[in-house]
Write a protein that binds this DNA or RNA. Structure first.
Lengths: 342, 342
DNA sequence: ATGAAAGCGCTAACAT
DNA sequence: ATGTTAGCGCTTTCAT
């Protein structure tokens, strides 16, 4: 485990000072003569020097590392989101520390605090609960993007402390879109499979669903609380049958996929007997049977907006990512996009 | 953005020195009187002090951060692996920096170098190619686990430099298991859908497949090169039909899922006409139609072994993770595990 | 344009 | 048991 070369060794080899090496490496803040710069670059190449980011962070107080906290990295949508964010951050010369809260609030608090320990210069936090724990929020002194539909007042303390805390508020619109589409298909009783009832997490989705139902003078088809898993969706199928609905909006794609399997087993035909749309879809929806109509978030765009917010200290209080519906078979839009992988 | 409290402030409040605060925080290396310890802990609570990890890293040379590089975080298997590793590392008080190489060697090199910049104390690298680029290997001065079936000689340079470089070598066995199972089902012509042909990446899987085919005096049913995506699997279906096989081993679950959709479309019945098994499966395989028989890696165990290797400087040269076959419908083992979510 | 030097917050060797 | 202090590698102010 040989020690890595330091700035000092580079300076010695280039016959100059560490200050100048620093100027060259960082392209400033002071000018360097072309000649000297060249010697320094050669010395860097010769020694294999790479700046030590711990030292850099210590002196500058900024780390070029962003933290991301998600409740379940094995959820394909969250994995996709994480990937999009990683790509965006990488292109801006940031690295990404990732924490998985396992959908548990206790663990989440601990994960966030650990990340803060690393002097991250920004935090992207897909919270488990809504609102997020106040005591953790109070510890945030860095630009933070909360990925959940938060009431502004929950953040007042954070705002006052001068932190940039932004918020994603789209799930409501996504749910509204999905429900509306089912209405357009002529569905009469539209149910909603949401998250576990003890969690407020999915309140926004439920609201969007109710918005659309109300707007079309229908009665809500009933709401089912289920874990955000394929198994959760699978098990909801039976309840759904009892509710005698003809359509359902699932809170996420995993539930949607589970639902399809459960309905198949229950002998319910999709989309003939029951239309299904899931939120937060990925390309995996192209390969189920039937293919699953979803509402997708444009994660690449969202990632870019998040990054903008974090490194420009933008004053945006809310980010509203674009959302679009991908009509496939499960809602009744037959023969669209089947297995094409888009 | 108020400055965070430092050790010095804690010391002042507790009326002691920074050294003692350090001893308390790190539980050593020197003893502290019970009384003093209590005052320090109170001061920490009062100030909200959290150690600055940049300073810690700088002085100690170790960072409590491990780097993970994967080719595609949106691949459910890799997402699961990343999650398992994150959980294991978290339980050992490590944090995880993650880089997505996007399955491109150029990007991969850059991602690895960026991680090295952060003084990570270990690297877990699911390489794009086999063997991994030598120039990058040569830069590794930290314990590293390469997740790919590497020839020992490719690492000789790394070993000589005293680095702990360990290797995962299981894919061959996984492929052998899968193929053998298809043989047991009486399949005669067993094909293999591997990775893109210009990549050696999947050589181990191909070897395991050939091992099993040879052991049963069958002729190989043909090999198809396809991207490691659902779309790749989907498009292989047509070629598979031409090969007139009665079984196939797909290199990963995404290909397997795509294959099922493609075969369905081509009017091929699974498992009646064609048996399908995919490697590196996840629980998602429980919800396809038919449910997809897979060989799974026990990612939790693997993660634990990896972590052991990284923080104990273990001398193990190879990690052989446990692998097990989950028989579902697609191979011909009907009515097993259908939608049960296990 | 270049260099000397003062820290950034922390750990641990070395006093006491 | 506790305190003092010398760096860890880097950035940047302040000379020159």
């Amino acid at each position: 485990m040989g020690k890595r070369p330091t700035q000092e060794q580079v300076a010695r080899l280039a016959e100059t000072s560490t200050a100048v090496v620093s100027y060259v490496v960082n392209n400033g803040p002071r000018p360097v003569a072309e000649n000297t710069r060249k010697r320094v670059l050669e010395a860097i190449a010769a020694t294999g020097y790479r700046p030590n980011s711990a030292a850099r962070t210590l002196v500058s107080g900024r780390s070029s590392v962003i933290g991301l906290v998600v409740p379940d990295l094995a959820n394909p949508f969250l994995a996709l989101l994480a990937q999009s964010i990683e790509h965006e951050l990488f292109s801006r010369a940031y690295s990404m520390l990732i924490g998985d809260s396992a959908d548990e609030q206790r663990r989440e608090a601990s994960v966030v605090e650990t990340l803060l320990t690393h002097e991250i210069s920004g935090l992207i936090w897909y919270t488990v609960a809504q609102p997020p724990p106040q005591d953790v929020l109070d510890k945030l002194t860095i630009p933070t993007v909360i990925l959940n539909d938060i009431e502004r007042e929950d953040l007042s303390a954070a705002d006052e402390a001068g932190r940039v805390v932004s918020v994603l508020a789209d799930e409501r619109e996504a749910a509204r879109l999905a429900t509306e589409h089912l209405v357009d298909h002529g569905r009469q009783r539209i149910a909603h499979v949401g998250g576990p009832s003890q969690r407020l997490n999915s309140a926004a989705r439920a609201r969007g669903w109710l918005d659309a139902v109300a707007a079309s003078d229908l009665r809500p088809g009933g709401q089912i609380a289920a874990p955000f898993t394929r198994q959760g969706g699978f098990e909801s199928a039976a309840q759904l049958v009892e509710l005698e609905c003809d359509a359902v909006v699932a809170a996420n794609e995993m539930q949607g996929i589970g639902l399809l399997a459960g309905l198949r087993r229950a002998g319910v035909r999709v989309p003939e007997d029951l239309g299904v749309i899931a939120l937060n879809g990925t390309t995996a929806a192209d390969y189920s049977l039937p293919t699953l109509t979803t509402v997708e978030m444009l994660t690449a765009d969202l990632a870019a907006e998040i990054a903008d917010t974090l490194d420009s200290d933008s004053q945006a209080l809310t980010i509203v990512p674009d959302v679009r519906m991908i009509a496939r078979e499960s809602c009744g839009c037959a023969n669209i996009g089947f297995g094409t992988g888009r």
